[in-house]
């Protein structure tokens, strides 16, 4: 008994180096962002940085980022769900290979994916740079992140439940909307989060595929990430930190929300089947 307890202790300490590294390189930087967000250039406490966020240009970039991230998520969902569903219909032996084909681009550098989009849609098809091309780039970039969780949940779904629904007289559309779709919610939520948050904070896609000059429409302008980048590039750490803090709060909040939502759903799923 005694030796076991000692052993447990010695194993737990193996996580200590990582813990120390995390405190220094994960927690301290977050604290720094917090400090810089609430101080001015000479180090005095202030709300000024957040007051400045109220300026029209900052708000516009946040709304624009939200819209583009929202559209990206919806389009990714509309493309991934049928793809994942189609994947579950084909032979199990071939499924993994086809899933691999879809996931492979996820492993190559995201800049290369953006470059491929530029080469095909802009240089080959002659599309103008701007909002639409940025949207295409984001969908292309983030599609696998939506597909994977949705496929996982559809592949694990109990076929008997769907058959039972049909046997009890539900039309295919009814089975889809009342049984299959609610049961796939955890996958949809985690996929949506994995697409929405990176899309919201991305700046590379809009830098490369976004509008590059002249007069633009509202949607063609700078995104959230671009503004943070812009502040830091010019040494305005305080305003940049305030924006970054806002982004961080948004990320933590939606992660928490998704954790709660998916946990609730899986519990209920277990309940209905049992």
């Amino acid at each position: 008994m005694k030796s076991k307890k000692k052993l447990r202790l010695s194993k737990g300490t193996m996580a200590f180096p990582y813990f120390a590294v995390s405190v220094l390189f994960v927690i301290v930087p977050l604290v720094l962002i917090l400090v810089y967000a609430f101080t001015d250039a000479s180090g005095n406490f202030t709300f000024e940085n957040f007051a400045r966020l109220g300026a029209a240009s900052s708000w516009k970039s946040i709304i624009r980022s939200f819209l583009i991230a929202f559209f990206t998520t919806v389009i990714c969902l509309l493309l991934s769900y049928p793809t994942a569903l189609a994947l579950t219909k084909i032979k199990a032996s071939k499924r993994m290979i086809i899933l691999m084909i879809f996931i492979m681009p996820m492993w190559i550098n995201s800049l290369l994916r953006i470059y491929a989009v530029q080469l095909f849609y802009a240089d080959t098809l002659g599309m103008e740079k701007g909002f639409v091309l940025t949207l295409i780039g984001m969908v292309y970039d983030f599609f696998p992140f939506m597909l994977l969780p949705i496929y996982t949940i559809l592949a694990d779904m109990d076929k008997m439940v769907l058959e039972a629904s049909a046997d009890l007289g539900a039309k295919p559309a009814e089975t889809f909307f009342k049984v299959r779709l609610p049961l796939s919610m955890p996958g949809i939520v985690s996929g949506a989060l994995m697409v929405f948050m990176p899309a919201m904070s991305s700046f590379a896609v809009s830098d490369i595929l976004g509008y590059d000059g002249g007069s633009a429409t509202f949607l063609d302008g700078k995104l959230f990430g671009n503004v943070i980048y812009y502040y830091f590039e010019r040494g305005n750490y305080n305003s940049g930190s305030a924006l970054a803090l806002l982004l961080l709060v948004l990320i933590l909040f939606s992660t928490f929300l998704s954790n709660v939502l998916t946990k609730g759903k899986t519990a209920r799923k277990g309940g209905t089947i049992a």
Binding site: F19, S22, F25, V26, I27, V28, P29, L30, L32, I33, Y36, M197, P198, M200, S201, F203, G225, I228, Y229, F232, Y237, G240, S241, A244, L247, L248, I251, L252, T255
Partner: peptide
């Protein structure tokens, strides 16, 4: 702690490192 690093936006992580 693990999850913070994974879900955090690259740009937030990046400026954290820069300030550090």
């Amino acid at each position: 702690i693990n999850q913070i690093t994974m879900v955090n936006a690259d740009i937030v992580t990046a400026i954290g490192f820069m300030l550090l």
